[in-house]
């Protein structure tokens, strides 16, 4: 049956869907939902050295790295400090989905990069329309945030207090 309908099946997106499946935020979402996200969300190709957003910008979107590398840079009194270099399958700017707040750090592409952009109003609409998908994503988001809190607490505990 599947072989019979092979001409109608879109195989080109399989790689991108596999990549989305590996993104922790979209963990345990089924293929149809991932395909829907891939169809609905905006994609943008960046050249090397492009600024995706700057520290302090109001954040309204989440980005998923589909291809290339993105460097997260924080401006400190000692100069720019690289916090992380994100590979395909990583995401950043997730706090923007919960609340519009200033970006904590800047995101700059290291090489030619393709990003998938999820805008806050799309996510809000998803929450209103499809509670199963949004609760799954929210749960994954909470998990990732709780890991941040743990990491920050560890840093605070370890850091000498003034």
């Amino acid at each position: 049956m599947r072989r019979f309908f092979k001409w109608a099946v879109d195989d080109k997106k399989e790689n991108e869907i596999a990549l989305l499946k590996s993104v922790p935020l979209f963990n345990s979402l089924d293929k149809t939902v991932l395909r829907k996200l891939l169809t609905d969300l905006f994609k943008k190709d960046y050249a090397a050295g492009d600024i995706v957003f700057s520290e302090g910008d109001m954040g309204k979107a989440l980005y998923v790295v589909m291809d290339g590398l993105v460097k997260i840079v924080k401006n400190t009194p000692e100069g720019d400090k690289t916090l992380a270099v994100l590979k395909p399958g990583s995401y950043f700017g997730e706090l923007a989905l919960i609340k519009e707040s200033p970006r904590f750090a800047s995101a700059v592409t290291e090489e030619k990069t393709k990003l998938l952009i999820m805008y806050k109003s799309y996510f809000d609409n998803l929450i209103r329309g499809d509670s199963a998908i949004s609760s799954r994503i929210l749960l994954n988001l909470v998990e990732s945030l709780s890991s941040y809190i743990c990491v920050n607490q560890d840093i605070d505990m370890g850091a000498p207090r003034e």
Partner: peptide, 14 residues
């Protein structure tokens, strides 16, 4: 999207 400068992507997408 390719024609939109990267600093205006979020505004455009929004």
């Amino acid at each position: 999207m390719a024609a939109v400068p990267s600093e205006y992507v979020e505004t455009t997408v929004s």
